[in-house]
Write a protein that binds this DNA or RNA. Structure first.
Lengths: 125, 125
DNA sequence: TTGACATATTCCTATATGGGAATGTAATAT
DNA sequence: ATATTACATTCCCATATAGGAATATGTCAA
């Protein structure tokens, strides 16, 4: 089997950096024309259309015609599965930070005590 | 240009569902042998080795030999870029939920008032 | 040494990409 | 009607899969 299609799910769709850039551009919640995307991200028009097409097929953006324009709008809820999946791992680095902070605070406290009592200064764990 | 390599970054690496399953398996923080991964996820041995290789190259897992085993361990910090990127969009659905909750509460309040005062019951926006 | 076990790597194939160029299609302007 | 503008689609190509099968490598055991 080959690699899964980019249109399989949000995970595959957002693997492309340009598509993430497009999503970032649509963060203002307003509808953006292909031309707008094309100009702001310096993409060729077919490239922009294709990337928007991928995002549309996985539900990350929606389109509606406005005259001869097509306005693409972000549908951020489609990113929720990604958020839900990765959030489980957040604790691994936030807890690490907690430990660092905790250690720093303990050290500061020890030093304060040392200064006051003029005691020993060799604890580390 | 073709699609970016799966080893380009965490975004590409986690696009594969089996690799996400492997990451989930390593969530206990302990080292797991390829055999363990192979058995628990019902993968062929070369498949497991290859997926672990991809995860290793992007820094999501680390390996160290233990006799004739190789123990793979999760390095969750490598997922932080994904978390940081997607978290920006969380507000789009949490605020939506807030609005729903708010609306439900307002409705409940209106009903309570209606019951008490026996007044009209047609508000909706 | 020989064999069994654990893992990595290589080869093969079907499939899907992303970009560029060219072209198709639809709506507006003149 | 014709030209222009805005997009989508198609074709071509280089590249990278993921899986299966086979094989290589490394380690321990008898």
């Amino acid at each position: 089997m080959a690699r899964a299609a980019t249109t399989t799910d949000a995970f595959n769709a957002i693997a492309e950096p340009r598509r993430r850039a497009i999503i970032g551009l649509l963060r203002d919640g307003r509808g953006h024309s292909v031309r707008d995307v094309t100009h702001r991200l310096r993409l060729a028009q077919p490239a922009a259309s294709k990337h928007l097409g991928v995002l549309r097929r996985v539900g990350i953006v929606s389109v509606h015609r406005q005259g001869r324009f097509r306005l693409y709008r972000l549908n951020a809820e489609a990113l929720k599965p990604v958020h839900d999946w990765v959030q489980v791992y957040e604790q691994f680095w936030t807890h690490q930070l907690d430990r660092i902070k905790e250690r720093a605070e303990r050290k500061a406290l020890e030093q304060a005590i040392t200064r006051r009592t003029d005691a020993d200064d060799k604890e580390d764990t």
